[in-house]
Amino acid sequence: MNKRLIFVLLGFGFSLSAFAQSAPATAVARGEYIIRITGCNDCHTPGYAEKGGNIPTAQWLTGNPVGFKGPWGVSYPVNLRLLMQSLTEDQWVNFSKNLQARPPMPWFTMQMISDSDLRATYQFVSLLGPAGVQSPAFVPPGGEIKTKYIDFVPTSAKHWNGFSHITAK
């Protein structure tokens, strides 16, 4: 950085450390954006989908005690804040690129996210800090389920009691 630019930055009340931190701040904002648009909160934040996303950021990504039951057993959305605290940024990228998880986790889409976007999500979640508790352990098929769960098994069309049509507002 040349002396004139330093003088201009200092003259406008900027410090070099604030200038140097602008790139990570941009990555953190990008990480928050990615978390929002990819639906991570829908499963990994209790009550998020039910409340239309109206959950304070401080409560995001703490895992969920409500499981998803299917032929694979019962899986639970992991507490991402605790998981990422146990990994370095490089380990998170490697973990995400090699993830194979039980439904309904779309692990195959995690493998398509760019390294820079995975790093941005890591930086955002790390900034949130640890919170919550570990999610319940996986329950294999036929095992005793001690929590609430969503039955994630499709039914035949003749038994479907869902909406006959969808309307837009």
Score class of each variant (00 low, 15 high):
residue 7 F to P: 00
residue 120 A to E: 01
residue 132 G to L: 09
residue 87 L to M: 15
residue 101 A to K: 08
residue 88 T to I: 05
residue 12 F to L: 13
residue 63 G to H: 01
residue 118 L to W: 01
residue 42 D to S: 12
residue 29 A to K: 15
residue 143 G to Q: 09
residue 61 L to K: 01
residue 35 I to K: 00
residue 78 V to F: 03
residue 23 A to R: 14
residue 144 E to W: 04
residue 7 F to K: 13
residue 145 I to F: 05
residue 166 I to G: 08
residue 37 I to V: 14
residue 109 T to I: 12
residue 166 I to F: 15
residue 71 P to K: 10
residue 154 P to T: 12
residue 21 Q to T: 08
residue 54 N to W: 05
residue 129 G to D: 06
residue 40 C to P: 05
residue 118 L to M: 12
residue 145 I to G: 09
residue 140 P to F: 08
residue 95 F to L: 07
residue 88 T to H: 02
residue 116 S to E: 14
residue 153 V to G: 04
residue 69 K to H: 07
residue 107 W to R: 00
residue 27 A to M: 14
residue 55 I to F: 05
residue 48 Y to Q: 01
residue 7 F to S: 15
residue 21 Q to P: 00
residue 106 P to R: 08
residue 18 A to Q: 15
residue 24 P to T: 11
residue 167 T to N: 13
residue 4 R to V: 14
residue 52 G to N: 02
residue 154 P to V: 06
residue 97 K to L: 08
residue 50 E to V: 09
residue 5 L to N: 11
residue 51 K to W: 09
residue 163 F to S: 13
residue 146 K to Q: 14
residue 108 F to Y: 13
residue 62 T to C: 08
residue 165 H to P: 00
residue 103 P to I: 01
residue 54 N to I: 10
residue 111 Q to P: 01
residue 16 L to A: 09
residue 94 N to Y: 11
residue 57 T to F: 05
residue 21 Q to F: 11
residue 65 P to Y: 07
residue 157 A to R: 14
residue 83 L to Q: 03
residue 80 L to E: 04
residue 98 N to A: 11
residue 45 T to H: 09
residue 78 V to L: 13
residue 90 D to L: 00
residue 61 L to I: 02
residue 78 V to Y: 00
residue 81 R to Y: 06
residue 6 I to N: 11
residue 6 I to T: 13
residue 53 G to A: 11
residue 144 E to H: 09
residue 62 T to D: 04
residue 61 L to S: 01
residue 39 G to D: 11
residue 124 F to G: 00
residue 68 F to E: 04
residue 26 T to C: 06
residue 120 A to N: 02
residue 139 V to S: 04
residue 120 A to Y: 05
residue 154 P to Q: 09
residue 45 T to I: 07
residue 54 N to Y: 06
residue 99 L to P: 01
residue 58 A to N: 11
